[in-house]
């Protein structure tokens, strides 16, 4: 070839062409697929909330019919957003702590939790109201925390008494498979069902994830995962920190 491949001019031209080509392809792709991706994330969020309320596997709910079922079981008009004292917000906090317009479903707790620039007092705590299969009112509270390797999250569903846990779902980004990753499994979730989140005098009863795997039954004790101690502790911390906010809200409601 006649072109000198080692000349500066050629190197620069090549580099610029490559960057422009790759940049264009990526930008077009990202812009073109953004709607679909956002949509997928929304459906996933609905699915996570639904799986706390009922057994999605048994009811054959997956991505394809998540939306209609979500509408059936969750009433987004009744969903509210709380601040960290358990008071109802008229909108949602933005990053600077101003209350701006926004809906409970649009709150991205994962992003808020990760963003170190956001003051912890200005996190939003969405609360979803819905109905279970028997038509009884349920409350779903999203949780967010840290596991061993990265973020973990979950949803806890309370019954109409605002106290007994009816169901839960947990998720994680990259916990150790076979150990921490087991928090998504039914045997771990079943440990939560039936527990109460408050004591008899309405004060918050912190959870304890115990590790002896003995089928712990005492109130507020949940079986942990053998070998997944740090993830189990992460779930415990996450549940206690987030649930406490909701308990103060429920207490305000009950005392009124």
């Amino acid at each position: 070839m006649a072109i000198n491949k080692d000349s500066n001019g050629y190197t620069f031209t090549f580099a610029i062409t490559l960057v422009v080509t790759v940049g264009t392809i990526l930008a077009l792709l990202a812009a073109g697929l953004k709607d679909r991706q956002d949509r997928n994330e929304e459906v996933k969020k609905q699915l996570d909330i639904l799986s706390a309320i009922l057994d999605v596997d048994k009811k054959k709910i997956d991505r394809s019919n998540a939306e209609e079922n979500f509408k059936k079981f969750v009433d987004l008009d009744k969903a509210i957003v709380l601040n960290n004292k358990g008071e109802v917000l008229e909108g949602i906090y933005d990053i600077k702590g101003n209350v701006v317009e926004g809906k409970a479903f649009d709150v991205d707790i994962r992003k808020e939790f990760k963003d170190k620039k956001r003051n912890a007092e200005h996190r939003n705590y969405p609360l979803f109201l819905g109905e279970d299969e028997k038509g009884k009112t349920v409350y779903v509270m999203p949780l967010i925390g840290n596991g061993l390797w990265g973020p973990i999250w979950g949803n806890i569903c309370l019954g109409a008494d605002m106290n007994t846990i009816k169901g839960a779902s947990f998720g994680h980004k990259g916990e150790t498979p076979g150990l921490g990753a087991e928090i998504t499994q039914n045997f771990f979730i079943n440990g939560w069902v039936g527990e109460k989140i408050t004591t008899e005098d309405y004060s918050f009863a912190p959870f304890k994830v115990v590790k002896d795997n003995s089928g712990a039954t005492a109130d507020s004790k949940v079986d942990g995962i053998t070998g997944g101690t740090i993830t189990s502790k992460g779930v415990e911390e996450m549940a206690n920190r987030c649930l406490e906010v909701y308990v103060s809200y429920f207490n305000n409601l009950k005392t009124k």
């Binding site: 101690t229 740090i230 911390e237 920190r241």
Partner: peptide, 29 residues
């Protein structure tokens, strides 16, 4: 501290239930 995270957590993380210090209670292996 793979296995003995349990005992130390109590010492290290006493403030779990304190709403005012939410920011500092990330679980930190």
């Amino acid at each position: 501290g793979i296995k003995y995270a349990d005992d130390t957590k109590k010492k290290a993380k006493v403030n779990v239930a304190d709403p005012n210090t939410n920011s500092s209670i990330t679980v930190d292996p």
